[in-house]
Nucleic acid binder design. Structure first.
Lengths: 236, 236
DNA sequence: CGCCCTTTCTACCGAGTGGTAGAGAAGAAT
DNA sequence: ATTCTTCTCTACCACTCGGTAGAAAGGGCG
């Protein structure tokens, strides 16, 4: 019975998808089960057959997002330990995780506001490793004299995460501050992200330009870094 | 009952205060009129006598916050045009506005998530001037060679606002990422804010130390000596 | 066919929501 | 004292919420 199983799992995924969208847009209490079911194209009791309660659905949505995050973390670790442009790689990889689906950032933000104490263990388990890696990287850079000596690594990393998560989540609102007369939304987004990475580098490295061009022993020259330099990530 | 003529206005202010707190903590839909009334110590219909509807109350809460903001803006403008330490003054003044009552940051964040299109005109009317001032300051600094030439001023300012608002709103969650073993919450907050200002300066000025020296007493060299040295904090 | 199992549905429930009607209390003004 | 205004209350309303009961649909399989 692979067909049935497939179908059931398919509906479950559809529910998760639309629930993610609506939770991100209206919040957990603001998005009703009826609306989510309607978006999927079923009735509310059918939805409750797949998820026993609304809170079950919330956990499912969160788990799905964290599962995706767990997929990118290994790439982050690998990028962080590879020879060159470690910072750029980790930053763009993390940023792209949220940019790929801004609802992730909005959902995370809402959960942090609604249930901070409940999110704390998740933060510790899922982003603590990330943090530790970057902090080690920063301290190493400080010893080598490439990174500003007066940085507070943990605090710096907190601000970086803040910039990436909230920057994506609130981007549509934030660009109201930018003279949008000539540029399209896409171009504004690119400007914002470019400046974010420049900002992050400038706050970290003593010589950002050098850091961008290849940090340690002279090696293979990376291409002039634009927004996405590392991965052959698809340009929309 | 000792009833003064100020009682009506007093109750209205109490309602606004508790509504701000509960809206910030649970969101607009998550905070019921009953709970707000109970926090004030009255019944729900009494609350609805002062505010005709829940949406009226929301507007009142928002207006009160913006009124406070309008009080600090003149100080910002004055600080921004005074001779020295303009950046530091504007940044700390803005940061202190939210730090004085973190619910302001949380409320603003929630409104941006819940009603982005409704917040857009408020952003343009209330923070557009702020933005313009800083952008002019940045461009002037670029001409004078004090500020990195490759900064995108508008994008930089957007990230700065992001850091200050979300940094305060999510601070309690974020410090879960910092090794809290030895330091108290207060000290962690101080570390975070100090690093935020350092971060902002480093992302802006070509020579942050020089930019900072203009403000403090002349002379005291940064002598942290250790990796995680806490710099002698400026006035805060 | 009958049986089983998964899935979806209609109909309904109690609880809680924002909001209203209208009575009453307490001063202030006449 | 009487009226008027301001404010608070109890009781109630229609509605939506998350969740349940149970019937029906339908495919696979003996």
């Amino acid at each position: 019975m692979p067909a049935e199983r497939t179908k059931g799992a398919d509906i479950t995924q559809q529910i998760l998808t639309h629930a993610t969208r609506l939770f991100a847009a209206r919040g957990f209490v603001g998005a009703s089960l009826r609306d989510i079911a309607k978006a999927v194209g079923i009735r509310k009791p059918s939805l409750l057959y797949h998820f026993n309660s609304k809170d079950d659905l919330r956990r499912g949505v969160l788990e799905k997002m964290l599962a995706h995050w767990n997929e990118v973390v290994p790439r982050l670790l690998k990028a962080a330990t590879s020879g060159h442009e470690q910072f750029q790689a980790v930053a763009t990889e993390t940023l792209e995780f949220f940019r790929a689906d801004p609802d992730r950032a909005r959902l995370l933000l809402r959960e942090l506001l609604d249930r901070p104490e409940e999110m704390e263990p998740l933060i510790e388990s899922h982003v603590q490793p990330w943090t530790k890696i970057i902090c080690d990287y920063i301290r190493k850079g400080q010893q080598q004299g490439r990174v500003h000596p007066d940085i507070d690594p943990e605090a710096y990393v907190v601000h970086m995460i803040n910039l990436m998560v909230c920057g994506v989540a609130l981007h549509d609102s934030m660009i109201a501050l930018m003279p949008a007369g000539d540029d399209g939304r896409e171009q504004l987004a690119a400007r914002t992200m470019t400046e974010l990475l420049r900002f992050a580098r400038a706050g970290l490295f003593i010589d950002p330009a050098a850091a961008r061009e290849g940090i340690e022993a002279p090696g293979p020259l990376p291409e002039p870094a634009s927004v996405s330099g590392k991965e052959p990530s698809p340009e929309r």
